Amino acid sequence: MNEIVKDPQKIERILNASLDRFASQRYQRTKVDEIASDANVSKGIVFRYFKNKANLYLETLKYSLENFNGKVDYSIWLDAKDMSEMIVQATAYKIKLQLKYPREFKLLLDAYANANDFSNKFNAKVQQVYEKNSQTPTDLLLPVLKRMNLREDVQIDDALRMINGVMLQIAEESKTFIHEHPHGSLKDMKEIIAHAKTYIGIFERGIQK
């Protein structure tokens, strides 16, 4: 079967239009007809290039992550002297990014927070796109951990697993907030940020007097 020749300009217009639609309307409410109209192409071209709506969503998510990652300064995370500083710096930086790139942030947050919009099989594909196109928690946490003055009996791998547990808790709280406040922003998440600092503080100091 001959490979379909794709026009790069049309691909860019389709992905840009789908980013607008998926970010503003989420997956279930978005129609391919609207994306085609916004991109000034036929609906047939969209299906010829991307096969179906689900694959178009995955490609749009990948497109957003690639664009976003190309603009993110990960030194904000990597240069922090400890976990508490990393949480504060990263949160302030995320707010700036959200204001500068609202479409990308909205799509990425919705894809993460609204897994119920997808079947289990499709949600697994969404997570695969995230994993292949995002920095892992270990990539961001390990340099900071190595600079900290850890006790001699503490192993880096054990500390990483514990911090990942804390990060999962923060992620679940963020996910719940986003689901309950679809028009909220990171500025509205002060309580979650405070929780994050508390959790990391307990991790750093321990729970005994």
Rank of each mutant, 00 (worst) to 15 (best):
Ala54Gly: 12
Tyr57Leu: 01
Asp157Tyr: 13
Tyr63Trp: 01
Pro8Glu: 02
Ala159Tyr: 06
Ile35Arg: 07
Lys175Ala: 01
Ser24Asn: 14
Ile35His: 09
Phe118Trp: 08
Arg48Glu: 03
Ala54Cys: 10
Trp77Cys: 04
Phe122Glu: 02
Asp7Ser: 13
Val144Trp: 14
Asn149Ile: 08
Trp77Asp: 02
Ile4Cys: 02
Asn2Gln: 09
Gly44Glu: 01
Phe47Val: 12
Gln155Met: 04
Ala23Gly: 11
Asp33His: 14
Gln135Gly: 06
Glu152Asp: 08
Ala196Met: 02
Asp117His: 14
Arg161Asn: 10
Thr176Cys: 04
Met162Ser: 13
Lys175Cys: 03
Leu19Ser: 14
Lys96Gly: 07
Met148Ala: 07
Gln127Val: 12
Lys125Phe: 05
Glu59Ile: 00
Ile87Lys: 10
Leu19Ile: 13
Ile163His: 03
Asp82Glu: 03
Trp77Phe: 13
Leu56Arg: 01
Glu12Asn: 10
Arg151Phe: 01
Gly70Cys: 07
Leu150Glu: 01
Ala124Pro: 12
Glu3Pro: 05
Leu140His: 14
Asp158Pro: 07
Val144Ala: 12
Trp77Val: 02
Asn40Gly: 15
Phe203Gln: 09
Ile95Gln: 11
Lys53Arg: 14
Gln127Trp: 09
Arg147Val: 07
Lys96Phe: 02
Lys106Met: 07
Ile193Val: 04
Ala159Met: 06
Ser37Ile: 12
Gln155His: 04
Ile192Gln: 00
Glu172Arg: 13
Asn16His: 07
Met189His: 11
Val154Tyr: 06
Lys62Ser: 02
Val41Ala: 08
Lys71Val: 11
Leu150Asp: 04
Phe22Val: 00
Ala124Met: 08
Thr30Pro: 12
Asn133Leu: 01
Met83Leu: 15
Val72Thr: 11
Asn123Ser: 14
Leu108Tyr: 02
Lys10Thr: 04
Leu142Gly: 09
Arg48Leu: 05
Lys175Thr: 04
Gln155Glu: 09
Ser185Ile: 10
Val129Gln: 00
Tyr101Asn: 03
Glu59Gln: 00
Ala159Leu: 05
Tyr130Ile: 05
Ile76Val: 14
Asn55Met: 07
Ala80Thr: 12
Val88His: 14
Thr198Ile: 03
Ala36Asn: 07
Thr176Asp: 05
Arg48Gln: 11
Asp153Glu: 12
His179Val: 05
Lys53Ala: 05
Lys62Val: 00
Glu34Asp: 15
Lys51Ser: 08
Phe177Ser: 06
His179Glu: 08
Ala80Pro: 14
Ile200Glu: 06
Tyr57Gln: 00
Asp157Lys: 14
Leu61Phe: 00
Thr30Glu: 03
Arg48Trp: 01
Ala80Phe: 10
Ile87Cys: 04
Val72Ala: 03
Met167Pro: 04
Val32Ile: 15
Lys100Asn: 05
Glu34Ile: 13
Ile14Thr: 07
Ser174Cys: 13
Glu34Thr: 15
Glu85Ile: 09
Lys121Thr: 09
Phe22Arg: 00
Glu34Val: 13
Asp82Val: 06
Asn52Val: 11
Thr136Met: 10
Ala36Gln: 03
Arg147Met: 05
Phe50Ile: 02
Tyr63Gln: 00
Glu3Ile: 10
Val129Glu: 00
